[in-house]
Design a protein around this nucleic acid. Structure first.
Lengths: 246, 246
DNA sequence: AAGTGGTCTAGACCACGCG
DNA sequence: GCGTGGTCTAGACCACTTC
């Protein structure tokens, strides 16, 4: 019945030892959240190894979300994760502040676009449908952690582009258009940073990300919008409390 | 208002080109789900580069979940993802079969343990509390994709270890102990493979994983168990449909 | 026995950040 | 202009899988 657990733990690799060593320093508080690590060259000397091997250890810690990088600026110790329940629609600012932290929002782009194939499929649209696209970056304690693309049906939101898009879109929907949320669907999956997302969050190409695609319907079951969220994966933990499904 | 999108797309790196090339072959169906890729050495020759660079491209595709590896066996094209709503408590087999796929379960270990610090905290237990630990590996179409550790309160489940633990624990709870689920809490976060998890799923140390920690209460709000799930991150997409929270 | 991925070495050049 | 991370080269040995 009970099976033994691999009797011979093989000796740890250099990568594992370096990872372990850095993790210990972080846990002990010697390397504090937000602090920059020494340069890769300095670390590789200190651990008597090459940069490649050292980078491999950093990559594992990055995958675990214990450290993060800013492109060409260096490696930093990850602050505590934001607790995020995707069902509490947006009010990003309120959610962040209720956890004792500071939020800001920056609009990168806002304008009409033509839906691409993936969006048409997700939103159930006719090919080449027009949409409004709003790109925003949101920060947690002055650190950019979230890049969001909102895709809205233009006919439901006339004049939206002239409004202040740095605040909650949920509030704009409700107060200016009388549109409230009903059922929503979320897809959560890890992915890698590319193009616009990588640039917006200051990540190198290929860095790990947590993607959340939300499809929002109104009280009558009609489509409101589709949001593509890309989180720095060290910055967040998805926490969902639920009663069981029927 | 609208900001231009980085006017000069810098020329793609070798890593990006290799990634692009492999992705295209996969999308076109020339490399089919489950197929093994050529060896790293063969690929690095074909792309006229070194193994390190080639491996970097494979690592990005792995992060995206387009390919996966089996330790020392090679790289494979990822099959379609299982759609998983963590709120539909277990019945792993039923969930898998309803999506037209095949499930199996293997018990690695089952026995009493002493709760570690993390578990005491998550479950709100006194230090050194006794628990029952059940380790299982679950496969999708003959591929091991999920490693689960269940931690149960021993006083609620006398004699459990003598039962057939390859089938649904949910069913055992209900049929043999009259215990059903009430509220549950899920934490979802990407992490890296280590030790027992890596061995159980045949992953190299440091490979990306999706961790889901579930804390299950019964109808009276009393703790039932805590499950630590570790998914191959290419094998699953978390999909949650929900009405908005009050 | 041959071939594979896992691990590691010892460099190099470049674009960019920062002072 | 210096140091940084980002990218890349050209090898090597070992443990393990597969034949």
């Amino acid at each position: 019945m009970s099976q033994w657990m691999s009797p011979d733990e093989r000796q740890p690799t250099q990568v594992a030892q370096i990872r372990q060593s850095l993790q210990e320093q972080i846990r002990a508080g010697l390397l504090r959240p937000g602090m920059r690590l020494p340069s890769e060259r300095a670390l590789s000397e200190r651990f008597a190894t090459t940069r490649i091997t050292l980078k491999e250890a950093l990559a594992v810690l990055e995958t675990e979300g214990q450290i993060y990088r800013e492109e060409r600026r260096g490696w930093f110790v990850a602050p505590p994760r934001l607790i995020y329940d995707p069902r509490t629609k947006s009010h990003f600012q309120a959610m962040v502040e209720s956890q004792g932290r500071a939020a800001t929002t920056r609009v990168l782009q806002a304008g009409p676009v033509v839906a691409n194939a993936e969006l048409c499929q997700r939103m159930g649209l006719a090919p080449l449908s027009p949409l409004l696209k709003i790109c925003r970056v949101r920060s947690l304690d002055s650190r950019d952690v979230l890049y969001v693309e909102h895709y809205l049906l233009p006919e439901r939101f006339p004049g939206l582009l002239e409004m202040d898009l740095t605040c909650s879109l949920t509030r704009l929907y409700a107060e200016r258009y009388g549109i409230g949320y009903g059922q929503s669907t979320f897809d959560i999956l890890p992915t890698a940073a590319h193009g616009a997302v990588a640039r917006a969050l200051g990540l190198p190409q290929g860095a790990p990300l947590l993607q959340i695609c939300r499809l929002n319907l109104d009280g009558q079951g009609r489509l409101i919008d589709c949001d593509m969220e890309y989180w720095r994966q060290d910055a967040v933990v998805i926490r969902i409390q639920s009663d069981p499904l029927p």
